[in-house]
Write a protein that binds this DNA or RNA. Structure first.
Length: 339
DNA sequence: AACAGTTTCAACCGCGTCCGG
DNA sequence: GCCGGACGCGGTTGAAACTGT
């Protein structure tokens, strides 16, 4: 006897959401707030299952979602966190509040894995100067290649010591590879039929952002349908510009990585209060599960005054706990920007 | 211009966990 | 403690977009 379907399959629509459906869903959530997904299809008349409604909301309609290119800073965070947490995309996403777990998962599978592979293939044999770095990456890549569904390796390190996360930090922690130049930007999908009607949704959401108590004033409106005003700024660039763009972007990436690194060093001199707080919170997280990340999220939100989440406390924790990872960070910065 | 191969990512599926009764 | 409903998560799929020939 199999598990019953989450919803009656008869009359349930599948596939891409239409703007009309989005409006209905957003309007309903605007009025009732997210949650009680089971009742959403019934109350809205949407021919969608509750899961589909929840997914659509959490991944695309929810305010505050940042879409488009990941910054090198975000890439670094994802790689660190993936190594530390495994494929716990929701947990990773909790440290990147503007990104959804689905987005991060997709980005990891389609971009970061390849970058790491490329990096690995560029060091077929362990170069003396980058032994720890390349071996860390090798392990990271192999783990994800050969055992994508098995998080035992990561969990071993994460859960082994619930009371003191500093003790069992992953000493094979992979590290941020040199940032890759951005891939050529696809044309804005606003040219598609579906996307062409998305401005209405955006306006709807924007107006909601202004009045909804559920939303935060600083968060960006979730710009669905890839109405890529901000996430694909260079979409209209001629492809002939790609070389120049890549050169400039490589410099930008490197500078970002440098600031990432400098932040880590700066934090060495900060007072220990934040660090203690962070360790306490992460101890709680690793001990009780990902749903207890609220404290961390609150902490992040409190400091979030820039485009990038102020995650240096986490970065600091990630790197401070191991001299290996510190060494690795140094190695990253010495690598040629070939990616 | 046309076609084939590749990549991307929105959405689905199934399982695990949580929680109230 | 047990049960069942609801939710959340991670893996996978497949259509659309992109790229190369």
């Amino acid at each position: 006897m199999g598990r019953p379907p989450c919803c009656d399959k008869d009359g349930i629509k599948k596939g891409p959401w239409t703007p009309e459906e989005d409006i209905i869903l957003v309007s309903y959530i605007q009025e009732h707030g997210p949650g009680n997904w089971r009742s959403v299809p019934t109350n809205t008349g949407l021919q969608r299952c509750s899961k589909s409604c929840r997914l659509r909301w959490t991944n695309y309609l929810r305010p505050g979602i940042k879409r488009g290119n990941f910054t090198p800073h975000e890439e670094g965070m994802i790689i660190h966190l993936q190594t530390l947490l495994g494929n716990k995309w929701a947990a990773i996403a909790s440290y990147l509040p503007q990104r959804t777990d689905n987005d991060i998962k997709n980005y990891w599978n389609t971009h970061l894995k390849k970058k790491l592979k490329r990096f690995q293939s560029s060091f077929p044999q362990e170069p003396p100067a980058t032994t720890s770095f390349s071996s860390s990456l090798t392990k990271c890549i192999n783990d994800n290649d050969n055992d994508d569904n098995n998080d035992n390796y990561h969990h071993h390190y994460i859960h082994k010591n619930d009371n003191n996360p500093s003790v069992d930090v992953d000493h094979n922690m992979a590290v941020t590879p040199p940032p890759a130049p951005p891939l050529p930007q696809p044309p804005s999908s606003s040219s598609t039929c579906y996307a062409s009607s998305t401005e209405n949704i955006s306006r709807l959401l924007e107006s909601w952002m202004k009045c909804s108590p559920l939303s935060k004033p600083k968060l960006e409106v979730g710009n669905n349908y890839h109405n890529d005003d901000d996430d694909n700024n260079n979409n209209n660039d001629n492809n002939n510009d790609d070389d120049n763009d890549n050169d400039n972007d490589e410099e930008d990436h490197f500078e970002t990585m440098l600031s990432f690194h400098n932040n880590l060093n700066d934090n060495d001199n900060d007072n220990d209060n934040d660090n203690d707080k962070v360790v306490d919170m992460i101890t709680t997280i690793t001990a009780t599960g990902e749903d207890s990340n609220e404290g961390v999220k609150d902490y992040i939100d409190d400091d979030d005054e820039g485009d990038n989440p102020p995650l240096t406390f986490l970065e600091k924790w990630l790197l401070d706990e191991s001299t290996t990872s510190r060494q690795v960070a140094q190695e990253i910065l010495q690598l040629p920007s070939i990616f």
